Amino acid sequence: MSASQASHDDGDGCSEPEEHLRRAGYALDGDGDCIAEARHHAVAFLEQAHADHHLMASARTRDLTQLVVSELVTNALKYAPGPVLMELRLTAHVVDVVVWDSDSMVPTARAADPDRIGQHGLEIVKAVTAELLIEQQPVGKRITARIALSDLLDTAGHRPG
């Protein structure tokens, strides 16, 4: 896979252009194994990035990436009819989880409610990611969640200092 140059106008809305070392896209069919399959793709993606580019994602980053993938794909399957697409993108500092679905309704995190059962997915994703962007598309919406590869990066995906 060749590297490509991200830019401010590549449509993901995330800050700071940076070269993608690796990108991979997946069409998820929505069957019962779809969410587990998406998590498996995320782990394999990070392992291949380590093999190809010697970039080591921390154990925390691996866990958070799987959690974010699980939450975003679950929400897409639950609320949107039709296909779900997932793209994983890697720079030297962050992994982006991008999920597209066919529902144009932009979700919002709900206010904290200890009595509410379920519907905490977006709250969780916002809490564990460095950056979260939700964009309406001509058809549906795209959600981009950015996760730092190292526990030593600040919330914008940069090394403090």
Rank of each mutant, 00 (worst) to 15 (best):
D29R: 13
D12I: 05
R23I: 06
V98Q: 02
T61F: 06
L64I: 14
E131N: 10
Q137E: 15
T108E: 15
M105I: 12
A76M: 09
R23Q: 13
A130F: 04
H54C: 08
G121E: 04
E123V: 10
V106H: 10
R142I: 09
A127L: 12
V73H: 01
L88C: 07
D29P: 05
A111W: 01
T61E: 06
G82R: 11
S7D: 12
I134Y: 02
L64Y: 02
P83E: 10
H20P: 03
A127I: 07
V139F: 07
A27K: 15
H93S: 11
V125H: 00
P17R: 14
R89S: 08
H50V: 08
H41D: 08
G30W: 01
A38N: 03
G140P: 04
K141V: 06
E123Y: 02
R62L: 13
P107V: 08
R116K: 14
V98R: 00
V69W: 02
D9M: 14
P138R: 11
I143A: 04
E47L: 13
E123H: 10
A130S: 14
S104T: 10
T129C: 15
C34A: 15
R39P: 00
L46D: 01
Q66A: 10
K126F: 08
D9Q: 15
V69P: 01
H20C: 07
V68Y: 01
D31P: 01
P114H: 09
E18T: 06
L90Q: 01
H41F: 15
R142H: 05
R116Q: 14
M105L: 14
A24G: 13
T144G: 02
V43M: 12
H54A: 15
A109E: 06
Q48T: 08
L90I: 00
G121S: 15
K126C: 11
R146N: 01
D29G: 11
D96F: 03
A112C: 09
A76R: 00
H93Q: 13
D96M: 06
P83M: 07
A80G: 11
E123S: 15
A51R: 15
L133N: 08
T144S: 11
D31Y: 05
G82C: 12
Q66N: 11
I134W: 02
L64S: 02
D10N: 14
R22P: 03
A36R: 14
D31M: 07
A24P: 00
H53I: 04
N75A: 06
M86V: 06
D9S: 15
S7K: 12
K141W: 05
W100M: 04
C34Q: 09
D10F: 13
L132E: 03
T91A: 08
G30Y: 00
E71P: 05
I124Q: 01
G32H: 10
Y26I: 02
